[in-house]
Design a protein around this nucleic acid. Structure first.
Lengths: 213, 213
DNA sequence: AAAATAATCGAATATAGATTTAATTATATC
DNA sequence: GATATAATTAAATCTATATTCGATTATTTT
C-alpha cells in the first residue's frame, strides 16, 4: 500500500481538525505525531508530506482558531451598535466560539505558555526552532494582541459615551477575556446549559462589571 | 563528590520551590527532571532520592499551591462578614495569591489539563501511572472542587440575603474564578500596577457582576 | 500511455529524557 | 571511633518520539 485511493485520501484541513482534537485532549507537548496521524488513519511519516514538522502543524491549528475568533468579533466592533451592545455581543460570540469548538478554544489557552516560553535550547543538542516557526509564532501573538485590542477599544468607547464607568481598561478587558476563556476549560457538551445560554449569561456579567451605575 | 557538605545540601521544600518555577516557565510536559535538578544544583538522579518520580514531584507542587490558596480563602468564608464583603475579599485574595506566586498560579491553570487527560497509555509500553499518583491526582481535583465550592457558597448566600441578583451560581462562580485565574497568565512583576492594585480592581468587577441593582 | 507529481508507508536514524544501579562521601547515632 | 543512614553522583538502561529516506502506488498532466 502506498498512495491511497482518492476517497480515502486526507487533506490539510482534515488533519488540522484532527490535530485540534488531539491537542485539546493531550496538550501541545504531550501530543505525538502518531496520535494525530492515527486520528486520520495515516502514519506519522505521512504527516510530513502535509506539514514541515510538528511545530508547524500545531501552530497552524492555533492560527486557525484565532482567525476564526477574530472573524466573529471584528464585524461587531465595526458595526454601528452602542458600546454596550457591542461588548455584550463580542463576549457572547467569544464564548460561543469556545463552546462550539472546544478543541481550538482550549488550545488558545493551554498552548499559549508552551509557545511563549519556548525551551531555550540551542546550546545543547536539542532541536532549535526554525526561523519560519519563530516568525509565525510571533505573528500569532501579535494577532492575539489585536484580538484583545478589539475589546479594549470598545471598553474605551463605552467610557467615552458614559455608558461604562471609569474602569482600568487593560485590567477589565483581561478580566472579561479571562472569564470567557475559562469556559473552554470547564465546558462539556451535553451539560445543563447550552453553549448559547452560557454565552448569554457570561456576556451579561461582563456588561454588569463595567456598566455605569 | 558524592554527598555535599551540609550547607550545600538541598531539602524537599527547596526542590518544590524550584520545580514550581521551572513548571511556570515550561509547563508540565516540557519540564525535565534535569531542568529542575539544575535549578538547585543537583543532578536528575539526585531528585529520585527526594521524590519517587516526576509525577509525584510535580503533583506535590500543585498540591502545595492549592493548599495555600484554600488556606487564604477559607477563613473569609467562615468569618461573619456580609456575602458582598466576603466575595470581594475572596476574589482579592485569590488574585493576590496568583500574583505573589505566579509559579503556582500558572501551574493551577496550565497543569490541569495534562492532569485531567492523562495519556491513556497502558496498552503500549509506555509508563502507566502509579496507583499512588492516580489517588493523589484525584484528591487534588476534589480539593480543587472544594475551592470552587467555597465561592459558590458565598454567591448563594448573597442571593439569599438579596445582596446579589438572581444569577446562575455555577456560571458566575466560574466566571469570577476564570477572570481571577487569567491573571496568572498575563501578570508580570514590575508592571504598571502592583498585585495589590490588580487584585482590588478585579475584586471590584466581580462584585459588580453579581450585585443587585 | 508516458511522464510527472502527490500521497502514502515501512523501516531506519537519532536523541532526549525518565528511571535504575552501584559507588562514594557526608552527617548522625551509638 | 565505629556503624548506620542520608545525599549525592556518574554511568548505564530503556523507551518514546520526531524526523528522514527510499520505495511504492495513485492521480494528473502532457
Amino acid at each position: 500500500m502506498a498512495r491511497k485511493p482518492a476517497d480515502q485520501s486526507v487533506n490539510r484541513e482534515t488533519i488540522l481538525h484532527a490535530a485540534a482534537d488531539v491537542l485539546r485532549r493531550n496538550g501541545y507537548e504531550a501530543t505525538t505525531m502518531k496520535d494525530i496521524a492515527s486520528e486520520v488513519n495515516l502514519t506519522a511519516a505521512s504527516l510530513y508530506h502535509h506539514f514541515r514538522n510538528k511545530d508547524a502543524l500545531l501552530l497552524a491549528v492555533l492560527e486557525g482558531g484565532l482567525d476564526h475568533a477574530i472573524s466573529q468579533i471584528e464585524p461587531v466592533v465595526q458595526s454601528n451598535k452602542t458600546p454596550t451592545e457591542k461588548l455584550h455581543e463580542m463576549a457572547r460570540l467569544h464564548v460561543l466560539t469556545l463552546t462550539s469548538n472546544t478543541a481550538v478554544g482550549a488550545a488558545m489557552i493551554f498552548e499559549i505558555r508552551p509557545l511563549m516560553n519556548l525551551k531555550a535550547d540551542g546550546r545543547n543538542g536539542a532541536h532549535s526552532y526554525s526561523d519560519d516557526f519563530i516568525t509565525k509564532r510571533d505573528a500569532f501573538f501579535q494577532r492575539r494582541e489585536y484580538f484583545e485590542l478589539l475589546f479594549r477599544q470598545v471598553v474605551k468607547d463605552g467610557m467615552t459615551t458614559g455608558e461604562f464607568r471609569e474602569v482600568d481598561i487593560p485590567i477589565y478587558t483581561k478580566s472579561i477575556i479571562g472569564a470567557n476563556n475559562w469556559v473552554a476549560v470547564w465546558y462539556k457538551e451535553g451539560g445543563r446549559l447550552s453553549g448559547q445560554e452560557i454565552a448569554e449569561l457570561i456576556a451579561d456579567g461582563a456588561i454588569r462589571a463595567v456598566k455605569s451605575d
